[in-house]
Simulated assay, not measured.
Amino acid sequence: MSNDAPVRYKVAEAARLAGVSPSTLRLWESQGLVVPGRSDTGHRQYSADDVARLQRISWYRVERGLNPAAIREALESEDPTDSPEGSAVSDIGRRLRSLRHAAGKTLDQVAGDMHITSSTLSTLERTSQGVSFKTLHDLAEYYGTTVSRLSGEERDDVSAVVRAGEWRTWPETTPGVTVQLLAEGRIMMDCHRFVLAPGAASEGAYRHDGEEFMHILSGRLELVLDSDQFFDLGPGDSLYFESRRYHSWRNRHDGETILIWINTPPTF
């Protein structure tokens, strides 16, 4: 019987194939040059693509004498996306990378401005994953855009009717936060269905222009406005507030919390 599961290499195996020591791989990971997957038990696992990337990193370091920042830029130039062309998963990361290049910024510069690590930003640009909801919002604001635009909501080829269960979904940039689109196109409202896993949170407060409305369908959500107003919202509850107020949120339910969330104008 054939086995089509992708090959995964442990640290020692990947290091041997790349011609470096295991400690060097850990150093490159801390520098944001490569981000391996993890097993269920938390151990690093390198794919065949990761090993090929490690070999390129080693070549740039030894043959070209590049520092980590220059190696990252060189890898991006030769490999602009790690996902298939047109993949929805890579769209947000690809757009963020294009915006950074247009601004003439390096990974280290933007990461420093955002107070996040270069490895976190590199992972986001390559996979559209790995940051908090607040960080994603702050990055969009930094580049003068919105999360909704980064997610490709302003398309022209959309239907006025969205059937139940046929919602298009944002890439899951934040673990446990699923955002489904209830309306798309060049419209005056962001209309979303949020599905929050237990414990999912914004991981910080953010604000933007506009007004917001939310209606809880199931579960329980804690929303905090201006750091001192706490709202415990359950099924059937609604809340309306000005988006310029700092707001943060967390699923306080031991199961999923599902809510309808609308922003107007579309400034998130």
Rank of each mutant, 00 (worst) to 15 (best):
I92A: 05
E203P: 03
E203V: 12
A102L: 07
V35E: 10
T106W: 15
D157P: 06
H192S: 06
V195C: 00
W261Y: 14
V158G: 02
H101F: 08
D237N: 13
R186P: 06
S23A: 12
T123A: 06
S128D: 06
L136N: 04
V161G: 04
I92W: 06
S77G: 07
E203K: 10
N251R: 06
P265R: 11
T81E: 09
M1W: 11
Q31A: 02
E256K: 09
T24Q: 13
S77K: 14
A70M: 05
V224C: 04
P80S: 13
D156T: 15
S238D: 08
E212I: 09
R155A: 11
Y46G: 03
R193Q: 11
Q180M: 07
S2L: 08
Y240S: 02
I258T: 15
D156R: 14
A12L: 06
L221E: 04
H101G: 00
D4F: 09
R53S: 07
A69M: 08
M189I: 15
G104Y: 11
S2V: 11
P235E: 13
I71M: 01
F231P: 00
A15M: 01
V34D: 08
L139R: 00
I216M: 02
R252P: 07
Y206C: 04
L27Q: 11
L225S: 09
T24M: 07
A183C: 04
G236N: 05
T106A: 06
T174F: 00
S118M: 00
R97A: 00
W59G: 02
Y240W: 15
D49S: 10
W249E: 01
R64C: 00
A200T: 13
A103S: 11
G42H: 14
R53D: 07
R94Y: 06
D50W: 07
L124Y: 10
L139V: 11
V162R: 02
Y240D: 07
E184I: 04
F230H: 12
E85A: 02
P235D: 06
A52Y: 08
D138W: 04
G104A: 01
V147T: 09
P22H: 11
L181C: 11
R149Y: 13
D40V: 15
I216Q: 03
G152S: 14
E211K: 10
V161F: 10
T145Y: 11
S128Y: 07
T264C: 01
R61E: 08
V110P: 01
H208L: 01
G204Y: 15
